[in-house]
Each structure stands twice: as C-alpha cells, then as structure tokens.
Design a binder for these strands. Structure first.
Lengths: 253, 253
DNA sequence: AAACCGAAGTTGTATGGCCAACACCTCGTT
DNA sequence: AACGAGGTGTTGGCCATACAACTTCGGTTT
C-alpha cells in the first residue's frame, strides 16, 4: 500500500475545504506561501497540489492575485469515471449488470486499430446490460485484447464491477479517451434497453490504456437519455476536450 | 505581444515531432535528461513541457521507464474548442452564422446561478444559427451578463466569430465547463435547423469564465447529430471528465 | 530452464532559491 | 474628482540538487 504523496493529500484537504465553502465561491485561497507554512512544506509542493485543483476547474490562477474559488465543482476521481458500478454507488443508486453474450472473435479493422493488435489476433467481445436501481440504463459492447480477455472471460455473468475485479487482478488503467456522440437504437439496443428501434441514445466510445500505453479495452456504451450527462472542464492550462467532425459514413463505428 | 514561455515552445516542438511520427506510436521519448540537454534547459522545464503532453493524452508517463507515445492524438488548442468559427476553419469548412433574435431580459434562476449575478440584473439573450459550409449545423442560445452583453449587442447580425471579436476587445476566456447530453428538438430548433420537432439533438451547455473567475457567458448549443462528436481525454494525472446523473425533471435547462 | 539478484537508467517527490510579470492599493499630483 | 506613480503582495517561470521508487536487463544461482 503505497502512501499518497504529500501534494495529493494537501490537494485533498483543500478540495474538501472548498466543498465545505470554507472560502466561498468567488472567494480567495490563501497565498502559496501561507499554505506552505501551514502544511510545513515548500512552495513547490503547494504548487503541485494547486495544479490538481486548477486542472479540475476548482480554482483559477493567474499571476498577481490569489487564486479564486470557481465553484462547487462536480469533481469525481478517475476511478469513478472509469467504473460504472463505482459511479452508480456514488450517486446513491444500486448498480447491476449482466452479460448477455460473450465470445472470442478475430479482431475487425476498428478493433485492430484501437487495440493496436495484429490482424490475426483474437478479441473477447462482451455485450453487457447495466442497470441503475433495477432499471436498464446502458448497453455496453466491449472488446478486450487477448491477455485482458482471458481474465474477464471466466467471470460470472452477473459480476457487478468488472473494473474493480481487474484492478484486484493487477490490471491498472492509466489513461482513457472518450468520444461522445448520438446514435439511434438498433434492434439489439431496443430489445435490451426497452426502447423502440430508432430511439436516440447517447453513445460513449472509450479506449483505455495501462500505464505503459498498452490498450486494455475498447468499449461502446449506449445510454438511455434523460438521466445522464457528461461534464468536462477545460482551460488555458489544459485542454482535454476537442470537437470532432465526422464524415457522414464515419468508420470506427 | 508576450513571448511564449520556454516550456510551451518545447511542448509545441515535441507535439509536432510526435505528429510527424518521429518516435512512432508506442515508441519511447528521449529521457528528461537528454531533452534538457538538447534544449539547454533544466529538467524542471522539460517536465513542465511533458506535463502538457501528458494531460492531452499524447504520452504516458510512469516511474522507471521512458515516456511512451500514445497515439496521434486529436489535440486542438483551447481557442479551437472555444470558438465555433475557428474550429470550423480548422477542419476545412466555412463557418457562417446569423443572429435570429436578441434582447435584454431579467435573468432567470438558471442564469442568475450560472452567471453569478444578482436577482435584479439583466442579461443579453442571443439566438444564433451556425452553418458549416452553408448547411445549418447548430443552434446557439447564449446569455451574456451586463458588461459582456454591452459589447456583443452592437455587433452586426452576421458576425462570423463573436469569440474572436471579444478577444480583440480584451475579453479573455480562461476556463470553460461543458455539459453534454441529448435533447429533443422543440419547435424553434426544428424551424431553424431544418429538422422535425422531436428529432434528437446533441446538446452542449457551456459556461465560460475569465481569468478572475467571473462568468462571461452561458450558452446552450444544439447540434444536428451525425457530423459532430466530442472527444475527451482523462487519466490518473488529471480527471476533467465526470458523469452526471440528472433527476427526471432536472432544472438548469 | 527458471528463479533470483543487483546495477544502471528513468521518472516522481520535495526542497530552496531567484527574478519577472502582474494585480491591487495607497498616496500624491494634477 | 480624476489620474498617475510607486510600493507591496502574489503567482509564473526557471534553475540546481537530492533522494525515493520503479523498470529493465544482464548475470548468477538454483
């Protein structure tokens, strides 16, 4: 169990203080020097902590004045965005899930490119339905490359959190790229989500990679609209959000 | 014209080198020490540059080994995400736009909260239709608080880029928070976008703030689906993306 | 052949320092 | 009252150093 570095612990404390309105929205944070003294660390360490808050959009920062608290920002950690089950629990819902179908297939074009595997390789395709407190919420089509698939395959179909299982198995997720757009439900979507064919769904395509940059999964999640939204923060300091133009018959479907 | 700091220039060079496949996808970057020597700067400066690439998802980084190039990542800068016109031009389309309606109104609940203004204050509401190379693409409902609205109001209705005009006027955007979900077209959407009432649209609600944390605009953009997608990168290092649960009759409409 | 060990290389964490750029306030001048 | 100059406080940029934690690889032992 590696101890959290100091700058992360300090960031956590500041995050909590902000959440409790210790400085109020629009209020000013103490200066870096003051914080350094309070926590008995150097200014550099304080700056590292504040960087985290800045990237999450909790505070601004500009030369000359103290940092300003932006808002009670909707910050979750990486793990919560990564795992449907964890997210569901954090909003007070009961997550549930069931594998509808799974099996090994030769990788198609998109899978080869997304998972960076050779033409011959196999992938494990899993079709999974996710519930929020009993109601269908999302249909998930995930492709796992050989090594990860071998871990996922034997899991019982009603495993609530595959992500959490993989973590315990030593599979660490470090990066994820999400593409969000809109699609119309096909027959399979309609059947399992309980909507009509052609009904609009919010689609999130996601590729996750491990700390070494090796792709771990490629997934296409389709959410019933009305109860889900994606929130992104970007700033001059970091611009993780981009708009994408697709030609009418865009591949990578 | 302030000179770009060194770490940003170095990041730009590395970005370009990666784009030209100088290290190849899955390849390894030179060590921090080697880069520091090459650019004749300290390791700290190199690390600042590499942080930028890491947040954008171009490279991984973990203790013990050299950084790995993740992919030709879809990176645009903040300005391109911020301005519809700039984005359109960057993908080779001709942006166009026209104000359909605009006028001052007392701020409603959502506007008061989003723009952090007092109950009595006025906002300038602008309804704007955006075209991509002649075809309707997006309908934009923006609310500007008093000072910004006063700058926007006198603009000619066919101003292509309001954002670029505001920049020249000294209005700087530093932060933006985006909420992406799905809505069905109302009568007004249908009329101007040329779709049917009830057709699904991709909605992006956006609040931008200046470097001091003062809200500059609150906008609700509705995109015709099929040609637009939002791409987000997140990682252990920074988690700007969150999932949000909305109660059926969520306010903040 | 497999497992273990250790050395070398690399990134992460933290300290300390210095100056520049900028915001903000005060005070004095106009 | 309006304006401008200057001083103070604060963050940004950059440097140098030291050690810790980790990966990788080669060699050794089992």
């Amino acid at each position: 169990m590696p101890a959290e570095p100091r700058y992360r612990r300090i960031a956590e404390e500041l995050r909590q203080a902000i959440a409790e309105h210790a400085y109020g929205p629009g209020g000013r944070l103490p200066s870096e020097g003051a914080l350094a003294e309070r926590y008995a660390v150097s200014r550099g360490t304080i700056r590292q902590a504040l960087m985290l808050l800045r990237h999450d959009g909790l505070v601004t920062s500009r030369r000359g004045t103290r940092r300003v608290v932006l808002d009670d920002a909707p910050v979750q950690d990486f793990a919560q965005m990564q795992s449907f089950a964890r997210w569901a629990r954090s909003i007070g819902e009961v997550p549930d899930g069931a594998v509808i179908r799974q099996g090994w297939h030769p990788a198609d074009d998109a899978e080869q490119r997304q998972l960076r595997i050779t033409p011959g390789a196999r992938v494990l395709r899993v079709l999974r339905l996710r519930h929020l407190s009993g109601r269908p919420a999302m249909l998930e089509r995930t492709s796992y490359p050989e090594p990860v698939g071998a871990i996922v395959e034997p899991l019982p179909p009603d495993t609530v959190s595959v992500t959490e299982f993989l973590e315990r198995g030593g599979v660490a997720v470090a990066d994820a790229e999400h593409t969000i757009d809109l699609v119309l439900a096909d027959a399979e979507d309609a059947e399992h989500l309980g909507c009509a064919v052609g009904d609009p769904l919010l689609r999130e395509r996601r590729r996750t990679t491990d700390p070494a940059g090796v792709p771990l999964e490629w997934s296409q999640d389709r959410y019933l609209p009305g109860s889900i939204a994606f929130v992104v923060h970007n700033s001059l300091a970091s611009t993780p959000l981009t708009r994408h133009h697709m030609v009418p018959d865009g591949r990578d479907g």
